[in-house]
C-alpha cells in the first residue's frame, strides 16, 4: 500500500485475452475523497480494469486494492465498500424501480428502517422518486443510467467505480450527474470514473489517467496535465490563427518553421502546437505579417484535456 489514504490502488495489473493485452501493466493510486478520471480511446482497457477492480474479473498478473484489500484474495471485503456502475444496466423483468433497489439493499444485508431509508435516499438523490412504480425494463436509457447509479450507491460504499456514467444522458442530466459526483466526493467518497467526454471529466476530476492499448500513458492532476511545466515534450502551447485569404499557403509557410508541429487547417483557422515562449510568439506574429499574411487574430489557447488526449494517444486500435 502506498499509504493508508490510498483508497484505490492498481499494482502492476495485467489482463490478457489470448493475444490481446487489454490491460498491460497498469499502476496508480487514488486518494480518499478524490475523483479520478480514466480516459482512453475505445478498446483501451478501461472497462477491463474497472471490472477487475469490481471483483468481476481476475487479473492475469498483478493485483488491485480497495481500501487496502486485494481484489483477488479478499473480494468479499472489497465488495462491501465498493459500488460499481457498469456500462450496461442489468434489469429484471416484472420488477419496478423501488423493488429493484429494495432487492439490492437486501442483498447488501440492509434491514428494516435502514433499508427503507437507503432506498428513499437513493431515489431522492438520483431523481428516481417519480418513477418508483415504473417497471425497470421499460425505462429510457438515461433513466436506466440513474437506476444503475442508484444501485451502485445503495449500500453507501466508500469507493465508487463508474464506467461511462454519462453515456446516453441529456445535457441537463449530464450537469446533474456532474453535480452528483462532486457531491459524492465532498462526502468523502473516492470515485473512479471513465468517460469519452473529456470536457466533462476535466470539470469533475481531480486527477486523470490516460490509457491506451492497456498502458497508462500519463497520470496527474488535471491542471498539471494541462500545463505541464517540467516535461519538455509537453511544454507546447496550442496556437490558433485566423486569416483572411489563402490559408493553404500560410499553413505551408508555418510547417516550414521548426518550432511548429502538427499544423491543422480548418476553414480560415489554423491551429498548431508551438514550442516557444511569449517573446518567440510575438516574433512569429511579426514574421507572418512581414510575409504578407493577413492575420485576423492570433493567440494561444489554454490546452484542453482533448488536446492532451490527442497528443498523448496515437489512435491505435488493438
Amino acid at each position: 500500500m502506498i499509504d493508508s489514504n490510498t483508497m484505490i490502488e492498481f499494482r502492476g495489473l495485467f489482463r490478457h485475452f489470448g493475444q490481446t493485452k487489454a490491460v498491460d501493466g497498469v499502476s496508480f493510486g487514488v486518494e480518499r475523497g478524490t475523483v479520478f478520471g480514466f480516459i482512453g480511446p475505445n478498446g483501451a482497457g478501461k472497462t477491463t480494469s474497472m471490472r477487475i477492480l469490481a471483483t468481476l474479473d481476475q487479473p492475469t498478473a498483478g493485483d488491485a486494492f480497495v481500501d487496502g484489500f486485494s481484489v483477488v484474495e479478499d473480494p468479499d471485503r472489497v465488495r462491501h465498500r465498493l459500488g460499481f456502475m457498469p456500462d450496461y444496466t442489468g434489469t429484471y423483468p416484472n420488477v419496478n424501480v423501488r423493488e429493484y433497489l429494495d432487492f439490492f439493499a437486501r442483498a447488501y444485508h440492509l434491514r428494516g428502517a435502514k433499508r427503507e431509508r437507503a432506498v428513499e435516499e437513493v431515489m431522492d438523490f438520483t431523481g428516481l422518486d417519480v418513477l418508483a412504480d415504473k417497471p425497470t425494463d421499460g425505462l429510457s436509457k438515461g433513466m436506466r443510467q440513474r437506476l444503475c447509479l442508484g444501485r451502485a450507491l445503495i449500500h453507501d460504499p466508500t469507493v465508487l467505480v463508474l464506467d461511462e456514467p454519462a453515456a446516453g444522458l441529456d445535457p441537463r442530466a449530464r450537469i446533474e450527474l456532474r453535480e452528483m459526483i462532486r457531491d459524492l466526493a465532498a462526502k468523502g467518497k473516492t470515485v473512479l470514473i471513465s468517460s469519452h467526454i473529456l470536457t466533462e471529466l476535466s470539470e469533475v476530476c481531480d486527477t486523470v489517467g490516460i490509457i491506451e492499448q492497456g498502458r497508462l500513458l500519463a497520470v496527474g492532476a488535471v491542471d498539471a496535465i494541462q500545463h505541464p511545466r517540467h516535461k519538455a515534450r509537453q511544454a507546447k502551447k496550442v496556437m490558433e490563427i485566423r486569416l483572411i485569404g489563402d490559408t493553404q499557403a500560410a499553413a505551408e509557410w508555418l510547417a516550414a518553421n521548426a518550432q511548429i508541429e502538427k499544423p491543422q487547417t480548418d476553414g480560415q483557422k489554423i491551429s498548431f502546437l508551438f514550442d516557444g515562449d511569449r517573446q518567440q510568439q510575438a516574433d512569429l506574429l511579426r514574421a507572418m505579417i512581414m510575409a504578407d499574411f493577413q492575420v485576423e487574430s492570433f493567440g494561444s489557447r489554454r490546452q484542453s484535456l482533448e488536446d492532451v488526449f490527442m497528443q498523448v494517444t496515437e489512435g491505435l486500435v488493438q
Partner: peptide, 13 residues
Amino acid sequence: EDRTYDLLSITAL
C-alpha cells in the same frame, strides 16, 4: 444473459 448476475455476485450475498 440479462447481465444481472454480475451485479448480484458483487453484492454481500
